[in-house]
Design a protein around this nucleic acid. Sequence first.
DNA 1: AAGTGGTCTAGACCACACT
DNA 2: GTGTGGTCTAGACCACTTG
Lengths: 234, 234
Amino acid sequence: MPKYMEIYQEVRRRIVSGIYAPDKKLPEGSKLALEFACSELTVAKALDLLVREGLVLRKRGLGSFVKRLASAASNSHLLGTAERCAWSGKTLETRVQCFTAVPASEDIARKLLMPTGELVYEINRVRVIDGIPSIIEYTWMPIALIPQLNLGHVRQSIYRYITGELGFTVHSAHMNISGVQASEQEIEWLALSGPTVLVQVDQTAFLDNGKLFEYSCARHLWHTFNFETDFVRV
Amino acid sequence: MPKYMEIYQEVRRRIVSGIYAPDKKLPEGSKLALEFACSELTVAKALDLLVREGLVLRKRGLGSFVKRLASAASNSHLLGTAERCAWSGKTLETRVQCFTAVPASEDIARKLLMPTGELVYEINRVRVIDGIPSIIEYTWMPIALIPQLNLGHVRQSIYRYITGELGFTVHSAHMNISGVQASEQEIEWLALSGPTVLVQVDQTAFLDNGKLFEYSCARHLWHTFNFETDFVRV
DNA sequence: AAGTGGTCTAGACCACACT
DNA sequence: GTGTGGTCTAGACCACTTG
C-alpha cells in the first residue's frame, strides 16, 4: 500500500474518532510530514483524498481544517446491492426472475459499447431488503467478459463473484437517476397495491482493465430509496 | 491558471473534439511533458483530473486511454438551477412564494451547523422550466453569510449573486436523493392533477471559505427529474 | 515578516504488461 | 528487456492570510 494511502487512512481514523475535531485545525503539512517520515507532497496527496471526500478543507495561508465528522461511504456507489446491504446491516433475499444468455439487442449493445448479436447475460432480480421487496434489477453483461457465471452467483452477489473469484476490481460507474412509472409486471413483483412511481438508477460500470462489463437498470421503491453523495470542486 | 489545469483543458478539448478517439491510446506522459514543456508529474496531475471525470483510463505498463467521449458536466452539481438551465438551453421562470428572514428553528440550525435562533433567509420558490412548473425549492441561508440578498436576486439566481456580486465560490455540496409524497400545497404549486410522488434532493453546500451557507430541499416532478454522475475509484 | 498551502521540477526507483 | 504509469523525494518559488 502506498504511503499516502496509509497517511490518508490514519488521518481519516483520527477525524472519525474525534482526535481531530470538526472546525479544528489539522497539524500543518510539515508537521505531518515529520510524523510520517515523508515529504510534504506525500502528505498533500493524502489530504487531497480527504478533501475530495468532503471531510477536510485546506485554506492557503491558514491551514487545513476538519469540515464535518460523518461522510457517506464515499465509494459505496461502486459496490453491489449485496455488499451495500451487508455494510449497513440489512438482510437481503434475492428472487431471480430471469437468468439467460441472449444475443445483445441493438439497444443493449449500444449501452455496452459492443457489437449487436454477441451473447450477453440477461438477468432480472427482485431484491427483498429487510423483508420488503424493494428493488427490481435488470442487468446485462457480456458473457465474454464474465465467464462461468452461474445461478448460485446470481442468487447471491454478482459483484462478489467478479471481485472475489474472478479477481477483478470495479473501476468506475456512470449513473443516471430518474423517475419512472411502475409496469404491471413490476407492480406484481414488488407486491404493490396499485400504480406508483419508482426511482430508476441506470448504470454502466467499468472494470479496472477498462472494459465496460455491465449495464443495469435498478428500479427502487420510492419510499425506501436513498442516494447520498458529495461533490467537491477540484 | 496552473499549468496542469491548462494541460487538462487542452487534452479534454482534444478528446471531445475527437483528436484523441475512444479506446485509443493517448500520447505517453513523457511525450505530453515534452509538448507542454513541463515535468511528467504535472502531466500526471492533469490526466488524473480526466480519470476522475471518467474520461480517461490509465493502465500501468500499457498507457493512457480514452474511455468514452461524452461526460456529464462533472461540476454541474455545484451550480444553481438557473445556471443549469442556461447551460442546457432551457427557459426558466421563477415564482417566489416566500422570501423572509426568520430565527433558525432547531431543525434548520442543525442542518446549517449554526446556533438556534440566529436569523436565516427562508425562501420558497417554484421553478418553471420550459413552461412546466418542475421544481419546488425550499432554501435556508444564514443572513450573516449572505448579506444584502434581495427579491431581485431571489427571482433570478441566488448562486449568481453569491458567486458574482459577493465573489464567493461554491466549494462543495453534500446531497441526498429520495422520494416523497407531494403535499397539498405542492400539488397546487406544481398544478398537478392529483397526489403523486416527487423526487427530493436534500442538500447542504459550502463556500470556499469553509462556511456552510445553504440548506436546501428541492422537490422535482418525477418525470422531468434527471441526475447524472460518475464514480471513479481513487 | 512569518507561516501556510499550491505548484512545479528533475530525478530516482518500483510495479506492471508486453515482446 | 523495454516501455509504461505510480510513488516518492528534496528543494524551489509563489499566493494567500495574519500579525
